[in-house]
Amino acid sequence: MNTEPIIQLIDIKKGFGPQQVLKGINLSIYEGKTTVIVGESGKGKSLIIKHILGLIKPDSGKVFVFGKDLNKMSGKELKEIRSYFGVLFQNAALFDSMTVFDNVALPLRERTRASEGDIAGMVNEKLKLMDLEGSNEKFPAQLSGGMRKRVGLARALVLNPRIVFFDEPTTGLDVAKSNEIYRVFFRTQTKLGYTAVIVSHDVPKIFKLADYVALLHDGIIQDCLPPEDFQTSDNPFIREFVEKTMGLIYESEEVEG
């Protein structure tokens, strides 16, 4: 952890009405690494990502991206920062009135001056990487959940971003499909070398991919540790989380033993 973090959240607080969801988030994300944010559902994990993306302004606290304060940026700077981001939304957020091809081509068409021929080349390359050849002309509604996520991932990666955010990439998929998403993720990350921030509760599988695991509990990041240290941490909340999510196996062993 000797390098400077590329994303830093300092004491982020955010509430909706009387409900205080984030109570002082401190988190650093390092270049080229995969950071996984785990925690119970509905406790603000996706909210953290939305803060980093600048979609939501915190009530107090600071977000630094590449060393710059996100909330003091002009619209133009924010736009530039976002051009380094790729996002896979929870429900993929595909443009449902466009075909798969147009969905993936959109960032290229709107943000670059590439010719249609080049765009087709780049889009097909990304779709191939996701094993999606042959569905170019389909509409999102005609795809299965796993395919939709892969299209979303292709769209997130098409501009070769430096940081990619995954908001629950495997939620709602069966085991085989979610393994497939992980494989695609692993393959693309080794190939493209991006920094990944994953929000997930697919424990323990997600530990295999993570360089760092952060637990969000009670509106606070309890700790951000490499997976091995995470599983043996002394923090009571992390212990509880690890036991709750992975403990069943031990328990049954106890019974069997």
Partner: peptide
């Protein structure tokens, strides 16, 4: 519908106004 299904957020994240 675009707002509710996060399509507008997605556009903003792609730095498309």
């Amino acid at each position: 519908i675009m707002r509710n299904s996060e399509q507008i957020d997605a556009l903003e994240c792609m730095a498309i106004d």
